[in-house]
Write a protein that binds this DNA or RNA. Structure first.
Length: 110
DNA sequence: CCCGTGACGACAT
DNA sequence: TATGTCGCCACGG
C-alpha cells in the first residue's frame, strides 16, 4: 500500500469521498500521515486534473469549507458541481459544511 | 543540484 | 475576531 506515490494516495482517498459530501485538504493529509503537508494535497489535486482516472476534486475544500480551488477547475465551476450533488454553496463557501464534512480518518478508520 | 512556488493549516499578534 | 507569518514538502525550471 505504501508503494504508491503520495499523489496516488490522495487520489484514492478523494475518490472514496461519497457524493454530497466534502472533506478538507488537511483531513486527507492527516489520514495519509502527513498532516503538515496539507499543501501537497492541494498540489496533488492540480495534478489529479491530468490523472488517468477522474478525481472528484470538487469535493475537496479547505478547512473553512471554502472553495479555494474553484479557479483552477477551469470552465465549469466547482460550486456548480457541488450543488449538483446536493451541496449548498454560497459565496464560495459550503453551507452546513460541518454536517457534510467527511473525515477519512473516521469514515475509513480501520 | 538549487531556488521558487503553492487547491493549506496552525499559531502569533 | 481579523490579519500576518511560518512551516510543510513535492515538482518544475
Amino acid at each position: 500500500m505504501e508503494d504508491i506515490n503520495f499523489f496516488d494516495k490522495v487520489y484514492q482517498v478523494v475518490r472514496l469521498i461519497p457524493p454530497g459530501r466534502v472533506t478538507s485538504y488537511g483531513a486527507i493529509a492527516a489520514y495519509l500521515g502527513t498532516k503538515g503537508s496539507s499543501r501537497m494535497v492541494g498540489y496533488a489535486m492540480q495534478s489529479a486534473r491530468k490523472a488517468v482516472v477522474m478525481v472528484p476534486a470538487h469535493r475537496v475544500v479547505n478547512r473553512q469549507g471554502l472553495l479555494t480551488g474553484k479557479f483552477h477547475f477551469g470552465g465549469s465551476t466547482m460550486q456548480q458541481l457541488l450543488e449538483s450533488e446536493g451541496v449548498m454553496v454560497k459565496d464560495d463557501q459550503v453551507q452546513d459544511f460541518k454536517s457534510l464534512f467527511w473525515d477519512p480518518s473516521i469514515e475509513l478508520a480501520l
